[in-house]
Amino acid sequence: MNSLLNQQSPKTDNLVSPYLPSAATVERVTKLTEKERLFTVTPLAAIGGLPVSFDPGQFFMCGLPGYGEAPFSVASMPVNSHINGSPKQSFDLCIRAVGNLSNAMHRIKKGDRVYLRGPFGRGFKTDELKGKDLLFIAGGIGIVPMRSFIKSVAGKDSYGKLTLICGAKTPEEILFQGEMDEWKDMGMDVRLTIDKRHPGWKGNVGVVTTLISSLKLKPDKTVAAIIGPPVMYKFVALALRKKLIKDASMLVSLERRMKCGFGKCGHCQINSSYVCQDGPVYRLTDLAGLPEAF
């Protein structure tokens, strides 16, 4: 039968299913809020035959049999450790319980398994940003992928001034506040805001853009990273342009629905761009021809 293979159809030698996930052990579950939990996971074997390696901003498809898969940005950098004498790598996924899969994830305990494919997409290229002042602007759970970026540059001499603006609806919903104190100790300027007045909150009240006007930025040296709800991007970009930050110096990470991770299922498409391949991290100038971006 093989001698009759249609010679014009693409090669099918050694094709393996790109949908097969790899198991990972949950090392630790940390409850961050009522809705968000942080899962520290260690892949049992190299995913796809490669050691775990990713840029901040990249994502994995994480699934549970019976509940399907969904894309989740990595919330940390890979951490090397030794467990029972053998080298292991673990990393964090932060999951908000909003659907069937994420609610099932919240029932997961230490020692249970999750199933991963990835990493997918393009993340933040930290090497290309050396020497720059970095301004991180995160809204809501935008701080999750931002944490991966921050952890990979904080405390390193090769970067300039680091500033974080982080906003949430309420004080309780600002994730990783304990770690933000450590980031401050490493020299980062951390500024927080909540949407509405709240008993006991002495900090800024208002959307994240209200904190941008008072910043002292060097336009030629600053690169801004922006991650938040869809409505946030346009207003942050406007506020940064007023501070003379160029669009080419603004990096945004976009959220979309995804089913495959490699440009087939069509769900993440923004105009002519597939977020799972060209993004989720884009330079703002790359979005000029993509009016559906936000």
Partner: peptide, 15 residues
């Protein structure tokens, strides 16, 4: 990019 084994195998087996 990443080949879809399911589609491509079926395609190759078809006259």
């Amino acid at each position: 990019g990443t080949s879809d084994a399911n589609y491509l195998t079926r395609r190759a087996d078809t006259v």
